[in-house]
Design a protein around this nucleic acid. Sequence first.
DNA 1: CTTTGTGAATATTTTCACAGCT
DNA 2: AGCTGTGAAAATATTCACAAAG
Lengths: 212, 212
Amino acid sequence: MPKKVPEGVIERLPTYLNCLIQLEQEGVVRVSSKRIGALTGVNPAEIRRDLVYFGTFGIKGVGYEVKYLIGKIKKILGSDEPHQIALVGAGNLGSAIANYAALGKHGFQITAIFDVDPAKTGGKLGQAIVYHVDDMAEVLRRERINMAILAVPPRAAQRVADQLVSANVNVILNYTSVMIRVPPSVRLHHSDPVNDLLYTLYYLSGRHPVTS
Amino acid sequence: MPKKVPEGVIERLPTYLNCLIQLEQEGVVRVSSKRIGALTGVNPAEIRRDLVYFGTFGIKGVGYEVKYLIGKIKKILGSDEPHQIALVGAGNLGSAIANYAALGKHGFQITAIFDVDPAKTGGKLGQAIVYHVDDMAEVLRRERINMAILAVPPRAAQRVADQLVSANVNVILNYTSVMIRVPPSVRLHHSDPVNDLLYTLYYLSGRHPVTS
DNA sequence: CTTTGTGAATATTTTCACAGCT
DNA sequence: AGCTGTGAAAATATTCACAAAG
């Protein structure tokens, strides 16, 4: 049996993948953990240890074949095969996501888009048809989609999430500003620029523990 | 001598803050670590330990005053006072960010927006004037802005980042799909839906161990 | 020489479990 | 009763340091 893989490892794999893809585009054929470390800010020993959870992909004294390692990491993550995603919300944020080329490069295809505004439905946005939200359950089932990106106004977030869950969606990326509740069986990721800003803010000025 | 605050703690504080603000809006006055834990998925003991790095904010046997704790966390993070931010890129993503109300609620104000497209410059987007990128250095200096959100096409990302750095911006939120390089003195946060998707993907299919 | 893969050591983080306060 | 704050334990994560391989 393989040892248990720490969650931190899985969090870092997409970073390595990104880095490797960029190196590949620059024509780099082989790379050392030292170089990946310099580019990603991760300790080289940690990179090697992370990779070894899944197999021995390197050559001692030489390094890693970039293309080969990309393939391996994609396989580990599951992005070696295509995945269909629904996008809910065709506003500015939704439009940005629908036209986001990097998704396609990793095998993610936005197959259906949903919005409440009748003016937006019927047409296409990026590659996908924009449906009315009322048809969501039916379309999701028909297209066998189980991943969704939520880009609706805050007030609608929880309601839409509930609808997604009851349509058997089990991965939700929440791009709204509000926290939503889903059953434990559903993987939920909340992404918010505010959180990122607040986090970095702390490290800006040497503010230290408060007393009063 | 203040104990060193783990980075994970700082990462979780915005989550608590979000949760508390939502509770406040629902009219909740007092809350226990248990309840925050249920809402955020964080172990209650960990929440208490996190908070105690900065002071004792709770009442034994009772819990935490929601408003009071919100104030304390804001102070810890530095979001008790306003911060000015520049936004580079006035496309769909930029527009979504410019109109993102949650930023304002946390004291972040987008003060200047930049774009290359002359058709977009001159007017306003949200509250802020849209300038041409050529005027970036001058405007940033004049407005004393040192934080920026990058929402430009991938090809322009590194170039714009370099310009931001030389204009003394020391916090950059990278919302492009490419990794950019900045000097170590600059805090850089890369946010990418693809990474979030890849990460969750791993835990989806039965071929991988599941963390509960 | 260079660089991987890894046992061992170190450091950090999370969780338990309970004293003490309300 | 219910809950915080915390010492101690347990669990994880990171780094060192070096044998083995090209």
